[in-house]
């Protein structure tokens, strides 16, 4: 691209008079510079990508863009190589200076965790941004396709999106086959599936509520998330309500520390619910915490315990 520009430049220069040459070359420079800007945006894939969320970091790696990532957040720990990338701070408080110093061609952000003002700051500094908008499981494949398009890796994005879509569909079909045709809604408006609770942190009790990928996965697997009526995605939940709602299965997200020890007190107090009585308390990986490629593993892991 840049070589072409030089050649044209010389041809015109040798052919015309000095004054003409001057005007023409100026115009040409103007046009080519604009053109090159445009093409850089739409055709040339950005070389230096900066990811401001663990989920988008995982998607970028899964699309084979790992070597183009120049910076990630302190929370980006998957896959292993992500840990070796330069860090720019947290999701909610990224360092503007660190971002600028890494000279990214494009900064990938999410609507789920990154401050909107930060995007505005970046744009005012003429740094390109791409906002990843998917927040639900069903929106993930399309989100990946859109991002792949913007980053010039349409095919690889399509492959990844298809993979996730297939996994989701597989469970949709399986759920419909294994379960008898849905009984008419019972009085409480509940479906036939098992009642599930996903505990993110036991003390204080924080669970996965509506609008999270975890809630979507439970619904996909024909379960009923008992916390889906709460008003926020990660509610501080009432222990009394758990006992009343009597979940059949309890998942506890594995963290950096020994969750078995941390949650022993809580489980003792809710010992009467069927999940604890029947030993249906499962410690499950954090694959579903991030809306990225690992949701497939997360759903499969959950399916093992639910079906």
């Amino acid at each position: 691209m840049r070589n072409d520009k030089k050649e044209e430049f010389f041809i015109f220069g040798s052919l015309t008079s000095e004054r003409k040459w001057y005007i023409l070359s100026y115009l040409l420079l103007l046009v080519t510079s604009q053109l090159s800007l445009l093409t850089a945006v739409y055709a040339e894939p950005p070389d230096r990508i900066l990811s401001l969320a663990p989920s988008t970091t995982e998607i970028l790696f899964a699309m084979g863009l790992g070597d183009r990532i120049v910076g990630v957040t302190n929370f980006c720990d998957y896959p292993g190589e992500a840990k070796k990338k330069p860090k720019i701070g947290g999701m909610s408080n990224p360092s503007l200076e660190a971002v600028i110093l890494l000279k990214p061609d494009i900064v990938i952000m999410t609507t789920d965790g990154n401050p909107k003002e930060f995007e505005e700051r970046l744009r005012s500094l003429k740094i390109k941004t791409y906002v990843f908008k998917a927040r639900r499981l069903s929106e993930l494949p399309q989100g990946i396709r859109d991002m792949g398009l913007a980053l010039g890796v349409k095919e690889r994005a399509e492959t990844l999106a298809k993979e996730i879509e297939d996994a989701i569909n597989k469970f949709k079909v399986r759920g419909q086959e294994s379960a008898p045709p849905h009984p008419p809604l019972s009085k409480g408006g509940q479906r036939g599936g098992k009642k599930v609770l996903f505990i993110i942190w036991p003390e204080p009790l924080i669970v996965a509520g509506p609008g999270t990928a975890i809630d979507d996965a439970i619904t996909l697997l024909d379960g009923e998330n008992i916390a889906s009526k709460a008003k926020v995605p990660y509610p501080k939940y009432s222990i009394e309500e758990i006992i009343h709602q009597a979940p059949d299965v309890i998942f506890i997200g594995k963290g950096h520390i020994d969750m078995k020890k941390v949650s022993s007190g809580l489980l003792k107090r809710i010992a009467v619910v069927p999940a604890v009585k029947n030993g249906a308390v499962f410690y499950i990986s954090d694959s579903l915490y991030r809306l990225g490629p690992r949701v497939i593993e997360g759903i499969e892991e959950m399916a093992k315990y639910l079906q």
Binding site: N74, F75, D77, G90, N93, W201, E203, P204, L205, I206, K236, S238, I239, G255, H256, I257, V262, G265, K268, R269
Partner: peptide, 23 residues
């Protein structure tokens, strides 16, 4: 602000007045 441990953040939540852990 320098910790990346989610557990720490949640535990600090506890410190700010929460009786639900009482047993």
């Amino acid at each position: 602000s320098i910790s990346t441990d989610e557990g720490l953040r949640r535990a600090v939540l506890w410190i700010f007045g929460d009786l639900s852990i009482a047993d």
